[in-house]
Amino acid sequence: MNSKRKVALVTGAGQNTGRGIALRLAKEGADIVLVDKDATPLNDTADEITATGRRVSVFLIDITGREQLRDAIDHAENTFGSFDIMVNNPGFERENAEADIGYEEAQRLINHGIQSTLWGIQVAADKFRQRRQKGTIINISSTAGHENSSLVDIHTASKMAVRVLTQAASKELATDGIIVTLQCFGTIIPAARYVS
């Protein structure tokens, strides 16, 4: 992807996959808006992006809210004068083993994984149409969205749902010049776990 002089918004950008994506886009020449609900890891990522010479801004929200995501995109446009790339990266960790998941955690996983991606697609597409421009939406999933050995696994179900959302959106939005794509990663282990 040619990211030079583009403005990219990355959700879940404070750590792991989101942090890596934000840094890669910055190194390719994009200005970055980092979005998450915790300022500390976002500020650390922002410092690394600043060191690359690119512009960066931090915006704190809960990504499960559609209007909050819309506000984040408006912030990107108002801060940098453009908006070109949306990265929906709803990273989360399960609090319980699959067999022990209750209603509240199941709802949290669905809202965070599926709903936030759907809202991200919608609000990004709305902005691209409003600006009468082409744009790119990148949805982040994992290999769990393709296969899993568990018989009952809401994590896998959420990742598969993101895959289906991406396929549908790519067809629907193609006539508007909006590219919607899916990136799937394997298990991500934070480097800090290896620090003694």
Results as ranks from 00 to 15, higher is better:
53 G>Q: 13
182 L>W: 10
35 V>S: 05
79 T>V: 05
179 I>V: 10
14 G>E: 02
190 P>Y: 03
129 R>I: 09
70 R>H: 15
104 E>H: 09
24 R>M: 04
142 S>Q: 01
156 T>S: 13
103 Y>F: 09
11 T>N: 06
131 R>F: 08
22 A>V: 11
25 L>G: 08
97 A>Q: 14
114 I>A: 04
58 V>S: 05
141 S>L: 05
111 N>K: 12
20 G>W: 01
23 L>M: 08
53 G>A: 11
42 L>C: 01
133 Q>D: 06
115 Q>A: 12
58 V>E: 08
55 R>H: 11
162 V>C: 07
73 I>F: 05
91 G>W: 00
1 M>W: 13
21 I>D: 01
72 A>H: 08
111 N>F: 04
139 N>M: 01
146 H>V: 08
8 A>H: 05
6 K>A: 14
85 I>S: 03
40 T>S: 13
106 A>F: 06
42 L>Q: 02
60 L>W: 10
60 L>S: 12
92 F>S: 10
99 A>T: 12
24 R>T: 03
151 L>A: 14
5 R>G: 11
30 A>D: 04
94 R>L: 06
117 T>E: 07
46 A>F: 02
122 Q>Y: 15
69 L>M: 08
51 A>N: 13
93 E>C: 08
194 Y>G: 15
194 Y>N: 14
90 P>D: 02
134 K>F: 11
17 T>K: 03
152 V>Q: 08
19 R>Y: 08
66 R>G: 04
177 G>Y: 05
16 N>S: 04
164 V>A: 12
125 A>E: 15
88 N>G: 03
114 I>E: 01
73 I>A: 03
37 K>Q: 11
59 F>Q: 05
35 V>A: 07
127 K>C: 04
125 A>S: 13
164 V>K: 15
47 D>T: 11
87 V>T: 02
147 E>H: 15
115 Q>N: 14
144 A>P: 02
172 E>F: 10
106 A>Y: 06
88 N>K: 02
183 Q>V: 13
99 A>K: 12
126 D>L: 13
196 S>Y: 13
150 S>L: 14
174 A>G: 02
149 S>D: 13
121 I>D: 01
159 K>S: 07
144 A>H: 09
35 V>D: 04
103 Y>E: 14
162 V>H: 07
16 N>R: 06
127 K>S: 04
171 K>G: 13
